[in-house]
Amino acid sequence: MEFVDTSILCNLLSVPGKCQDRDKVIVELKSKRETGGCDLLLPVTAIIETGNHIAQLSDGYHRLKCAERFAAVLQTVIEGRAPWALNEVEWDAAHLTTLLAGGETGSTLVEHAQGKLGCGDLNILIERDRYLARTSGVTATIWTLDVLLAAYA
């Protein structure tokens, strides 16, 4: 099982300034699909972060085209045609408590902020940990191009 990070989604969607590894990501996705080596989960956090990256594009044309591609991808998730499934997570007090504590990382949210691991990346780790807590007999990693996040993945 692999959680798809924002860096992967931005490359697949060709988000300007966030897609320098697009060819590599496409090849890797094709390989994952052909070998059936792992199932992919799309964290809620990656959806929110990707949407924010798109909304912050300064060029209106690129913002529109990326938003359209993003909406189309989300529609494929809803219809079960995407190469990944949505990781459904409940945002409640327990989730926020875990986020503040830093989950299984051994450092708090504040400590991670000092070390430049953002709240979104930390939340992807929390989503993965909560997924593992509610399933049994599975392992889960994070497919990411982010070096800091990869250290915890």
Rank of each mutant, 00 (worst) to 15 (best):
M1F: 11
D5K: 04
T6I: 05
S7T: 03
I8A: 00
L9F: 09
N11W: 01
N11D: 06
S14Q: 10
S14E: 09
K18P: 11
K18M: 08
D21S: 02
K24Y: 10
V25P: 00
V27A: 14
E28A: 10
S31N: 15
E34Y: 08
E34C: 09
T35H: 09
G37W: 02
G37K: 07
G37T: 01
L41H: 10
L42E: 01
P43R: 13
P43G: 04
P43M: 13
P43E: 10
P43W: 15
P43K: 08
A46D: 05
I47L: 07
I48F: 13
I48M: 15
E49K: 09
E49I: 00
G51R: 09
N52K: 06
N52S: 06
N52I: 06
I54H: 00
A55Q: 09
A55I: 12
Q56F: 03
Q56R: 15
L57M: 08
L57E: 10
Y61M: 13
H62A: 13
R63W: 04
K65F: 09
C66N: 00
E68N: 09
E68R: 11
F70T: 05
F70G: 06
A71Y: 00
V73G: 01
Q75R: 11
I78V: 15
R81P: 02
P83G: 09
P83W: 12
W84R: 05
A85P: 09
N87C: 15
N87H: 06
E88H: 11
E88N: 11
E90C: 12
D92C: 04
A93C: 08
H95S: 11
L99C: 10
L99W: 06
A101I: 01
T105I: 13
T105P: 11
T105S: 15
T108I: 07
T108E: 06
L109D: 11
Q114C: 12
G115Q: 15
G115T: 15
L117S: 12
G120L: 01
G120M: 03
D121I: 00
L122G: 09
I124D: 03
L125C: 04
E127Q: 00
R130E: 07
R130Y: 02
L132R: 01
A133I: 06
T135I: 11
T135K: 09
S136H: 12
G137P: 06
G137L: 03
A140I: 06
A140L: 06
A140M: 08
I142Y: 07
W143A: 00
W143P: 05
W143V: 04
T144E: 04
D146W: 00
D146A: 05
V147Y: 12
L148N: 14
L148P: 13
L149Y: 12
Y152S: 13
A153R: 01
